[in-house]
Design a binder for these strands. Structure first.
Lengths: 125, 125
DNA sequence: GGCATGTATTGACGGTTATCAATCTATTTG
DNA sequence: CAAATAGATTGATAACCGTCAATACATGCC
């Protein structure tokens, strides 16, 4: 692709500083890392989930689903749905006692998530 | 609904520590704040947008759409779509020169976003 | 057993979002 | 002017997500 002698080849005459589309831009953030970061953000990126985490992070155990349902503007199946997502993400867990399910925060997992997000955010800086 | 004398009313006999559904849980994170945080995360929560921000944050200007299209695994309209979202969020901007549009990061807006996110993450801690 | 109750799951519906082919709009060049 | 090209927009499609009524499941109590 190089014609060093007669330099009339595809000099598309860019207004300033040639090089557009010439050398490939190095993507430092791989598609996989970007996907992982995106997943990390997605789990937090819903108001109900965020409020659930907020409530659980302030309560030392003893929060059952009916408590959450009373505190949140959605119905019980929706609460259960978000609780499931948060549990599958490892951010919360629950313990069944009798009829009730007591949910609580998994502080280590939450801290790890915070670290990953903070790291990626800094990498943007 | 109250029969104060004979106290057999709805003592649902919770396994331990009464109070489930009795007093309302205080929601410290308001629905509006949760929504704002969610919006803040959403704009970052896409691999392509994240890679765009990564590329732009490392290049001091001079990144045109064809550069991005070459570096990313999506077609030109999709690149333009995400560029538009990022621009509407104030995180990037562009300058047209001739046929080309040069995109660049808005570092202040990005820093502000990072601060808001970091703040909310800490509040969870 | 049968009834009541807390929670999980299912299934359906509506809304949002991501993607790309096709098209349109500048703009430059011949 | 016409042809070429970078980028934006449109419109269609598909996938995804949030919500809730209905239902299922489990447990405790009679």
């Amino acid at each position: 692709m190089e014609t060093p002698t007669t330099a009339t080849v595809e000099l598309r005459e860019r207004p300033r500083s040639a090089g557009c589309c010439a050398e490939a831009l190095p993507v430092r953030l791989s598609a996989e890392a970007a996907q992982q970061f995106s997943d990390d953000l997605q789990i937090l990126a819903h108001p109900i989930r965020m409020q659930i985490l907020d409530i659980l992070s302030r309560s030392a155990g003893q929060v059952c689903v009916c408590d959450l349902e009373a505190a949140l503007p959605v119905k019980q199946p929706t609460v259960s749905h978000h609780l499931r997502l948060l549990r599958e993400a490892g951010l919360i867990d629950c313990e069944r006692r009798g009829l009730w399910a007591y949910y609580f925060i998994q502080r280590e997992a939450l801290a790890a998530l915070r670290l990953r997000i903070a790291g990626q955010l800094e990498a943007l800086g």
